[in-house]
């Protein structure tokens, strides 16, 4: 159960060992008594230790390639470069955070990868498809089969129960009802919402809504999940649980997950972080 995994992760932070207490005291001292900064530094350290201690992950082939991609928007009479000359490669199975301050181009980059937006220059190649060359309907088909979107505000259909909400991407993929039902059961169990399937979104907590949104994104078994601030609208505990859930999804389905986040703690749980500033990678 993925739930147990993220429960354990939560309990780790609540039961520090004696050596950690000593370390905390030293770090507190180093940060002049600022508890928040000291805790953050320690978490960073722990993450690096976990990454270093973890066996080297074997990723799949490159699935996302951005080659000198730029995208400008008009703001009044001025043109603003939301994404400027960004080139990057992401492999199958990577869990990546895109971070940066507000307006740095994180969401634009995510939309370019998801085919919701088109670059002014450069090429975006996803799973071998140059998105610029896909017609609108082919692009929709591509999104439906290859990409799963998770949004900060969940965007569940308020008048559909959880089960039907989960089924929506399958409707557009023309999955049979039986196949959809089977996948919904599996995913609901995986994200821990089996007992909420017949409920309306308004009857769910924030965390349950986001887990529903993640399950919806997974219905068509996409190769890539793009999550825009997935923890932005839930509390700390749920944020951790959601990040744990992404990790589990990656483990279970080998999905490439790209998360746009402001949340440093969330970013720390990923394999790598792409930092953006003024539309450029740093």
């Amino acid at each position: 159960m993925l739930n147990l995994l993220y429960m354990n992760a939560a309990s780790d932070t609540q039961s520090p060992a004696t050596s950690q207490e000593t370390e905390l005291a030293a770090v507190l001292d180093a940060f002049g008594g600022d508890v928040e900064k000291a805790t953050s530094a320690l978490a960073d350290l722990a993450a690096r230790r976990r990454q270093a201690a973890a066996p080297a992950r074997q990723y799949g082939p490159v699935i996302i390639t951005l080659d000198h991609v730029s995208r400008q928007y008009k703001l009044g009479h001025e043109k603003v470069g939301a994404v400027q000359d960004v080139s990057l490669e992401i492999r199958q199975g990577e869990l990546i955070a895109i971070t940066g301050p507000s307006g740095s181009g994180k969401s634009t980059l995510l939309n370019l990868i998801g085919g919701l937006d088109k670059p002014d220059s450069g090429t975006v190649t996803i799973d071998g498809h140059n998105l610029a060359k896909l017609w609108d309907s082919k692009l929709s088909e591509f999104r439906n089969r290859t990409i799963g979107f998770v949004f900060q505000f969940f965007y569940l259909q308020p008048f559909l129960n959880v089960r039907t909400n989960l089924a929506v991407p399958g409707m557009f993929a023309r999955l049979s009802r039986t196949e959809r039902a089977s996948r919904i059961t599996e995913l609901a169990e995986a994200v821990g919402i089996t007992d909420r399937l017949e409920h309306l979104p308004k009857e769910l907590s924030g965390g349950q809504m986001q887990r529903t949104a993640i399950a919806r994104a997974l219905l068509n078994r996409p190769k890539i999940i793009l999550a825009d601030e997935p923890t932005g609208n839930v509390d700390r505990t749920n944020a951790r649980a959601i990040m744990q859930l992404f990790a589990e999804v990656r483990e279970r389905y080998g999905t490439t997950i790209i998360i746009v986040t402001h949340d440093a703690e969330a970013a720390r749980t990923t394999d790598r972080t792409i930092n953006l500033r003024d539309g450029r990678t740093t």
Partner: peptide
Amino acid sequence: RKETSVFRAVGAKRHE
């Protein structure tokens, strides 16, 4: 409009 955007994101074609 929001719902339409979400549907577009999850792969709905315009005619759908």
